[in-house]
Nucleic acid binder design. Structure first.
Lengths: 241, 241
DNA sequence: CGGGGCATTGAGTTGAGTCAACAACCGTGG
DNA sequence: CCACGGTTGTTGACTCAACTCAATGCCCCG
């Protein structure tokens, strides 16, 4: 059997029973594909299902009234990009595909059923939303209190860690399909300033782009600069049964 | 029987059974008091219980390596200030009392028991953490993309709504026990700039402080300026059984 | 080979920060 | 009852990180 991204993610936090794995396979059976730049979930829409990203990268974003955009999360395979819509229903943000994406659509009524019959899975899903919350808090502290260089360094460290956890990063480089404008909207910067900051990073021998790939030249220095501590990602936190 | 803040909050989202209310009363029975400025939960500590705020106001904050502080949430009675520690265990932020606070300490093993036996309560607690996540995203978008004036206006609108929901705000004023420095640390500003911005708000006839109370002079204008839409607080979202 | 995104760079502007002084307020203790 | 010291709020002067506008270069794809 082919490995399932969500099962893989959850098993990092504790073993699943065969029954639980079956349930996950069942509720994620309906797969949909999207072109790059397609809107996967529309801002403001009321959802009846949640979306699990299986392949590709996506962003969570809002458009402000003055035309500005803000990106509140970057997503990769294994991420349940709008799990919270199970309980919150109305999307306060939209989700857009960056690269070509394959997703599974999970009906909320299936999640409701799971939450009634599988307490451990419920806690595990809750846990996933909490990790995302912790990540948002990290971003908030960064945008509020750190320089552009530190923020970008932190973001790269975070992506490096998260991608590594799902087997999508080499030791010193990974696919980074975002434009400078997208990085800017994620970190509350202008695209011009992201550009200058990347130049500085290159000059300092920290990291540089090579096509759509980020090459990390000096990971320890990058982490030091960013004050990066991967604890908030809770990558190997074990959950109680 | 005296009303219970958590039961009151949860009943806004759907009725509870007598059994569920009893359980909530039981698990929140252990009450502790704190002086103003006391540390309720230490940053970096590993928790074995979660904290429900019963009376007073508190903040969630981190200290960065360079001595800066960042505040990621403001809390009021009825808030489960570190519910996420039930699953994440290690506190990425500390929680500090602003005014005198009364809290209930809820052992994680009780929450675990609840999550096994009361699926609806589990979803309700999960929901509370999701609303907090949505609030953090709002702050993130604000800090990243809005001016100091807009951010403060938004914060005041948010507090006004949330306090009103727990019966702690008048129509046009409410207790605001935070210092300008605390507001600054919450919004990624300097305390000097908060001061100047409050002056501007006063001059524009939007709002002003009177002692430790914020007087809102023109709520519609304040909301318009902030682009405030209370939907993200999900104050009257109903939950399915 | 031509056009549409992106990335890059320069020039000039500005919102917010820093530093520093001072004023107002408040609780405490003599 | 008032003098004192600590905390918070207020204001001015100066600085700077990041923004905006605008031009140009680059590269991929049809």
């Amino acid at each position: 059997l082919v490995s399932h991204p969500l099962i893989a993610v959850l098993e990092k936090h504790g073993p699943l029973t065969e029954e639980e794995k079956d349930v996950i396979r069942q509720i994620t059976a309906r797969v949909v594909c999207f072109e790059p730049k397609a809107e996967i979930v529309a801002e403001g829409s009321v959802q009846l299902e949640s979306t699990l990203l299986l392949e590709g990268m996506a962003i969570r974003h809002v458009h402000l009234e003055d035309g500005d955009r803000h990106i509140s999360a970057l997503h990769m395979p294994g991420d349940f990009v709008d799990l919270f819509s199970f309980l919150l229903k109305k999307m306060d943000h939209g989700v857009g595909a960056i690269t070509a994406c394959k997703v599974a659509r999970v009906p909320h009524k299936d999640l409701l059923e799971v939450s009634r019959r599988f307490p451990y899975l419920t806690r595990a899903f809750w846990f996933l939303t909490l990790v995302e919350g912790a990540t948002t808090r990290q971003w908030l502290a960064g945008v509020g209190r750190k320089s552009a260089l530190e923020r970008l360094a932190h973001l790269f460290c975070e992506l490096h860690c998260r991608l590594q956890a799902v087997g999508l990063s080499e030791r010193t480089s990974f696919e980074l399909p975002f434009t400078q404008e997208e990085l800017a909207d994620a970190q509350g910067l202008s695209s011009v300033h992201v550009n200058r900051t990347m130049k500085e990073m290159r000059a300092d021998g920290l990291a540089r782009m090579e096509g759509k790939r980020l090459i990390i030249e000096d990971l320890p220095a990058l982490r030091r600069l960013a004050e990066f501590n991967p604890a908030y990602l809770h990558l190997d936190q074990q959950l109680e049964r």
